[in-house]
Design a protein around this nucleic acid. Structure first.
Lengths: 211, 211
DNA sequence: GTCTATAGACGGATAGAC
DNA sequence: GTCTATCCGTCTATAGAC
């Protein structure tokens, strides 16, 4: 028998390219239609592959789904991980808000993919939420607590503050159609995000700055 | 001619009961699993009906879905509609935040149903978003603008402020699993919502109050 | 006795997986 | 390309309300 690859003998150039295409296609399809509303066929088509070929790379629809999620998870935590305990609190939080808002603008599909997953009870990434995510939030909550103790921020619940920032920034990706409907189509995307940032900064900053 | 009701010859007691049971069951199923992940069979089972019997009341899966959405829409706008132009701005906004948070606590499935629908591009309620919803938001944005002009609020974009309130309050329903994962299961629901409200009020109020 | 309400069984199409 | 499972929607027969 003359089988070239048992597991991943070589990370073939073609394999890398196809895997990437599949993940990108899956991200677009899953984020737009949810897991149940997506079909392998559609993902394969958008990736430029046949369905059997796609199933050669990932054994099942669920496997693709999990792969896309995991592929995006790490990237998703970056901005919060970058919160610097030694920086100026207001500045650091401002930077975090900006970064998250920027992610909503440039990667709305990723935001929607997570939103959909969590909305439905996080069947695939429950362990991520109670594990790495919670740990990171705990760590950063401690930082915020110290800032508050030092009188550099008004006293608020750090974890709720963090989630509040998630909510307001991701809203512009997850609820995009509603945002556009409410603002009207005359408002350009650039203007929309600039106004959003200004509003968030005003309320958050003035609400957090101690007197 | 002496016809009391032309279309619904009699609103049979049994019909009312079944329709209500179907809508309730559909709300639970659709909000938990999305449209594509839900089956008529499951909805019928939860409503205590056979599938053909359910389809006797609503002609298709989509008809049930639309019916549930419409059944909840009006109710959903109530708190915003109640914003009183003659009231104290900070008080009115506080009341609105409280009311929305309370809805997230008591009717999370409704919130999730909308979130899912909008997340996927609002195929069924697009006209509602650009119609009644936009109109109501426009009306209330004008009220907020007047408050700002009168120096009673800091200058912010009214529409973004309204959406910001939607985002932070609905977050506690839509992303419930994540909220619980991050806070840990030791925090009781009552405590969770109390902390949320305190954090929202502090940041929002202090951020909106003029100096 | 007539109309409403209910269910069992099935067709047909879609889509996951080999 | 095929096999199979799932699931929407219908056909038909019957039980029950008024």
């Amino acid at each position: 028998m003359n089988r070239p690859e048992p597991p991943p003998k070589k990370a073939t150039r073609i394999q890398k390219k196809n895997r990437k295409a599949i993940l990108q296609a899956a991200l677009e399809v899953f984020s737009q239609r949810g897991f149940g509303g997506s079909t392998i066929d559609r993902i394969a088509e958008r990736a430029g592959l046949s369905k059997p070929n796609l199933l050669y790379y990932y054994p099942s629809k669920e496997a693709i789904y999990v792969a896309v999620l995991e592929d995006t998870l790490e990237f998703w935590l970056e901005p919060l991980a970058a919160l610097d305990p030694n920086g100026d609190p207001i500045e650091e939080i401002g930077r975090y808000v900006s970064a998250k808002l920027e992610m909503s603008r440039t990667r709305p599909e990723a935001s929607r993919l997570f939103a959909n997953e969590i909305l439905h009870g996080a069947p695939a990434i429950g362990n991520f939420l109670t594990g790495p995510l919670k740990e990171l939030v705990d760590e950063k909550a401690a930082v915020i607590k110290k800032w508050i103790a030092a009188g550099k921020l008004r006293p608020v619940e750090p974890r709720h503050l963090i989630m509040m920032i998630w909510a307001v920034t991701q809203h512009y990706a997850d609820f995009d159609v509603q945002v556009r409907a409410v603002l009207g189509d005359v408002i350009t995307p650039a203007r929309r995000f600039a106004d959003a940032e200004a509003t968030l900064m005003t309320t958050l900053f003035e609400g957090l700055r101690p007197r």
